[in-house]
Amino acid sequence: MGLRERKKRQTRRAIAEAALRLFAERGYEETTIADIAGAADVSPRTFFSYFPSKEDVVFAEIDERLTEVREGIDRRPADETPLESMRRIVLEMIEAIAAEHGEYGAIQVRLVLERPSLQARALKRMNDTEQYVVERLTELCPGIDEIDAVVIAGALVGGMKAVITHCRAHGYAPEATRRAVDRALAIVEHGLGSVPALTHRATE
Rank of each mutant, 00 (worst) to 15 (best):
S53M: 09
K54Q: 01
D56W: 11
V58E: 02
V58H: 00
A60G: 12
I62C: 08
E64I: 01
L66H: 09
L66G: 00
L66M: 13
V69Q: 03
R70I: 06
R70E: 14
G72D: 05
I73N: 01
I73R: 01
D74K: 09
D74A: 10
D74Y: 00
R75M: 07
A78H: 14
D79T: 12
E80Y: 10
T81M: 08
S85Y: 00
L91P: 03
E92R: 11
E92Y: 00
I94E: 15
A96Y: 14
I97F: 11
A98T: 00
A98Q: 03
E100S: 11
E100K: 03
A106C: 09
Q108P: 03
Q108D: 14
V109F: 10
L111C: 07
V112K: 01
L113Q: 11
L113M: 10
L113D: 07
P116G: 04
Q119H: 05
Q119A: 07
A120I: 09
A122Q: 09
L123E: 11
R125L: 13
M126K: 06
N127M: 14
D128H: 05
T129P: 00
T129V: 11
Q131C: 01
Y132L: 11
Y132M: 14
V133K: 01
E139C: 03
D145F: 01
E146P: 02
I147L: 13
I147H: 09
I147D: 11
D148P: 02
A149N: 05
V150P: 01
V150H: 08
V150Q: 10
V151G: 03
G154Y: 08
G154R: 03
G158D: 13
A162M: 12
A162G: 07
T165V: 15
H166T: 14
R168I: 03
A169F: 08
A169I: 13
G171N: 07
R178Q: 12
R179V: 11
A180T: 10
R183I: 13
L185G: 02
V188C: 08
G193L: 06
G193M: 05
V195F: 08
